[in-house]
């Protein structure tokens, strides 16, 4: 699986267009917040900015690895390299994990880039950065990569994968927005993947304590969901449809 991951990393790092696109998407949020921070003043400014940061951070986890994800499986099928790859008798699970690991590197990189850029724009009031990163953001990157590799495996071309993965980015955005505008429902969903990470971010940015147990629980749930998706993707890749398309 490491052989597959290293090949995908090497391949993706040479795709300048894709890299620039990913960096642009990850920096779009901090740039937008920087502009808004200069326009919004008064008591509501902090709430508005913290809400925007949490949403853009969730989106960065998904957009960081999006371009790589669409190339690693749908791209394999499009360039007709999937059949030669499968003929090496490497287990489907190893192939999927290898590709997922490569996407995780970019998802995590996107998140970290977004975090760093936000530090230039806004100083969070909370002091639980490591807890947020380890129990919230890292599992979120694992899940985002798993969802993206799974979707890419279902698609027969990069164009098709691009369509669905671009739509996927709206899911964390919608969850984040829902959490901001309906805080009561956000409290209920705080143990669910994505919504839980958003609740964590909101508390951290607002200077409220980030509770350890719920954070660990949402981290474990998110990681478990990612593992389940990887397994499902490997099972799907073992089907005839994966070779022949739908």
């Amino acid at each position: 699986m490491l052989t597959v991951a290293l090949k995908e990393l090497r391949d993706a790092l040479r795709d300048t267009r894709s890299l620039v696109g990913s960096v642009f998407y990850c920096l779009m949020g901090p740039a937008f917040v920087w502009i808004v921070a200069r326009a919004v003043k008064g008591d509501s400014a902090h709430t508005v900015i913290a809400g925007m940061i949490s949403v853009f951070t969730l989106v960065a986890a998904f957009s960081g690895g999006m371009n790589v994800a669409m190339d690693v499986v749908a791209g394999e099928r499009e360039r007709r390299s999937l059949v030669p790859l499968l003929s090496n008798r490497v287990s489907r699970l190893d192939i999927v994990i290898g590709k997922w690991l490569a996407v995780v590197v970019f998802s995590t990189g996107g998140l970290l880039l977004c975090f760093l850029a936000f530090r230039f724009v806004y100083t969070p009031a909370g002091d639980s950065l490591m807890l947020v990163l380890l129990t919230g953001m890292l599992p979120l990157a694992l899940l985002a990569a798993a969802v993206e590799v799974g979707l890419s495996t279902l698609c027969s071309s990069v164009k098709e994968a691009h369509t669905y993965l671009s739509m996927l980015v709206f899911v964390p955005m919608a969850v984040g927005m829902f959490g901001i505008f309906f805080p009561a429902s956000a409290a209920l969903g705080s143990l669910l993947p994505v919504a839980g990470q958003q609740a964590q971010l909101q508390r951290w940015l607002g200077g409220q304590p980030v509770p350890l147990f719920p954070s660990l629980l949402v981290g474990i749930l998110t990681t478990a969901l990612a593992a389940l998706l990887i397994h499902g993707t490997a099972v799907w890749l073992d089907r005839d449809n994966a070779v022949y398309g739908r």
Binding site: K7, R79, S81, P84
Partner: peptide, 13 residues
């Protein structure tokens, strides 16, 4: 050893 389904190479490698 198998050469199936076109060449299926990775262009950036």
């Amino acid at each position: 050893g198998a050469l199936l389904d076109h060449t299926g190479l990775y262009d950036r490698l």
